Amino acid sequence: MAELLRRESGELFIEHNVFRVLDPEVMDDVHADFDETGLLVTVAGGAAVLCGTHIGTVHVTAETWSGAPPLDPGPWQDVAEMNLPWPGRRMEVWGAGYTPDEELPLAIPGPGAYRIRVSGRHRDHGEDRRAETDPMEQYLLQVWPAPHAPTTLHKATSALGARRRTEPRTGT
């Protein structure tokens, strides 16, 4: 049975509808095509997650596991997972990246083949979050060592994800 190794949680300020899981030494612009899952894509040096919020704050919980974590798509709108090759340096979750305290560290044991699963909810509210009672967009990132496997879309119910899968476009 897989064991949870570390959990970090916090709010990230994002721009351009994206936050990233990356090696901070590879701070490349994200120009990604999210048309396969409408949620998650691998990019140079990591992965990118598509959000409904263009500029604002999202809540992220990032977990590292010893093996595949239990899958519970019930409370989420969208759940996707894919391969994440990792060269063995630090892995962090980055929002807009203006200050060092905006990232969430992930404890990755070393270089190798990993999987990343991202679950998201409240993705369709986008910029319409006006009242304090409107739910904040939320994401759960789970990373674990695993051999190469096909990209899997476990759940796909958000309008945002559906638009990106049916109207593919390059870039964020």
Rank of each mutant, 00 (worst) to 15 (best):
E92D: 11
T99S: 09
G52I: 14
Y98V: 06
V43R: 13
A159N: 06
V18H: 05
P168G: 12
G52N: 06
L140K: 02
G46P: 08
W65S: 07
V79P: 01
T170K: 11
F13C: 00
T172S: 15
E25A: 14
P69Y: 09
M1V: 08
P135M: 12
G45Y: 03
Q77D: 14
F19Q: 07
M136S: 09
H59P: 00
A47C: 08
C51N: 08
E11M: 06
M1Q: 08
H154S: 08
G88V: 07
A44D: 12
T157C: 02
D28R: 04
Q138I: 03
N17E: 05
A131C: 11
G95A: 10
P111F: 12
Y98C: 05
A162R: 13
N83E: 12
G46I: 06
D35A: 14
R130N: 02
P111N: 08
G45I: 12
P147Q: 11
Q138K: 06
W94Y: 10
H31M: 04
W94M: 09
G110A: 08
A80S: 15
L141R: 00
E11L: 01
G56K: 02
P24W: 01
E81I: 04
E11W: 03
R129W: 03
T64A: 03
R165T: 15
V30D: 14
V30N: 01
W65L: 10
G52E: 10
R169W: 14
S66C: 05
G95M: 10
P147L: 12
H59W: 02
F19S: 04
E132C: 02
H59E: 02
R7W: 00
G38R: 05
L84Y: 07
G110V: 09
T151G: 02
P105K: 09
D101Q: 13
G56M: 04
L106C: 13
E92G: 03
A32R: 10
T133A: 13
R20D: 13
M91I: 09
A80L: 12
D72A: 13
Y139C: 05
P87T: 07
G126R: 04
E102L: 01
P150Y: 12
G110D: 11
P168N: 11
T64L: 03
L106H: 11
G45D: 12
R7I: 00
Q142H: 07
V143G: 01
A159Q: 08
R165D: 12
T172C: 14
M27S: 11
L141H: 00
L140S: 05
E127P: 00
D28F: 07
G161V: 15
D124H: 00
A107G: 10
G95S: 11
R123F: 00
H148G: 05
E132L: 09
D23L: 06
Y139A: 05
G52K: 10
T157K: 10
A131F: 15
A96I: 08
G67S: 13
H148F: 12
G74D: 15
T37Q: 05
A48P: 06
S119N: 04
A44T: 09
P168Q: 09
T152G: 01
Y114T: 10
P100K: 08
D72G: 03
W94R: 08
G126A: 03
Y139K: 03
L84W: 08
E102K: 00
T157L: 10
V30I: 14
